[in-house]
Write a protein that binds this DNA or RNA. Structure first.
Lengths: 140, 140
DNA sequence: TATAGCAAGTTACTAAAAGAAACCGATATA
DNA sequence: TATATCGGTTTCTTTTAGTAACTTGCTATA
């Protein structure tokens, strides 16, 4: 299994970005001063990622549909994450007062914008997951 | 604060990627069948992300340096994450049996490859963190 | 008139994970 | 002899996650 070699140029570009991103951060400052961290904490949460990915694949999903698709999530956590993701603007919640009740979740434009970036990460993970598995095996 | 509009073409492209990624996944299968999920679980963990970013910015870091830079991490968790990230092949650990002992951590090529993708996500988070904050405020 | 059922959660309880702080071993310095 | 260094580990407490039963409002069926 081959991996594209990373050139020094690419590394330098990453270093410049990181400098822009972290250069001003004083290590003595408490973490709440870093809003990136705060945003990443929710948006990079394991369950949030899966919720967003499934809402990318299925444009509209209801609570129990999500519960089935996001395999292994509990109702409690799903409910919590949906609330947070809605508050942060990643998805919308629409309630239809029918019987039985119907609630539809879908990504906002903002959520779609995040999904695009997220996809690049999951594509990477897809591509190299086997490699990670073999790396692990080597260590056992 | 403006956000680039996402075109239908872009959405479609994302949908195609998602289909490739999730289309074969049977929702009845237990989650361990999805290796992407497994890889993402570690690589998208809050502390792992910060460790990788700091090792991107500072090419070599020792245990206590990391502890200081990754603000708020406990020694226990840092130790655990470093072990896992080493096992998965993201970083290397080099021990110098001096006194006091010296241990150097640095990203592997594989780790650098991941860092590149991760950067795109954190750049996004940097760009839109204010927006998330205002979204939250609207909901309070 | 019970009664059973559904969707979308919530609640109460238990298990797992994270965080805080003390400790360790080898050695050098005061 | 006492203290400090480094890279952790151990123990204990607090937070978070997971499980399963329950709720709410209405409706279709017996």
């Amino acid at each position: 299994m081959e991996m594209e070699t990373i050139t020094d140029t690419q590394r330098l570009r990453v270093a410049v970005k990181l400098k822009k991103m972290f250069g001003h951060v004083n290590p003595k400052d408490p973490p709440e001063i870093c809003p990136i961290r705060d945003v990443m904490a929710l948006a990079s949460d394991k369950w949030s990622i899966l919720i967003i990915l499934y809402l990318g694949y299925f444009p509209v999903l209801r609570f129990n549909e999500l519960k089935r698709k996001v395999y292994g999530i509990s109702g409690k956590i799903l409910s919590e994450r949906l609330k947070s993701l809605e508050v942060d603007g990643y998805l919308s919640r629409e309630l239809f007062p029918e019987v039985p009740i119907r609630v539809e979740y879908r990504l906002t434009d903002f959520g779609h914008s995040y999904l695009q970036k997220l996809m690049e990460l999951t594509e990477w993970a897809e591509k190299y997951s086997n490699r990670v598995i073999t790396n692990r095996a080597k260590h056992s």
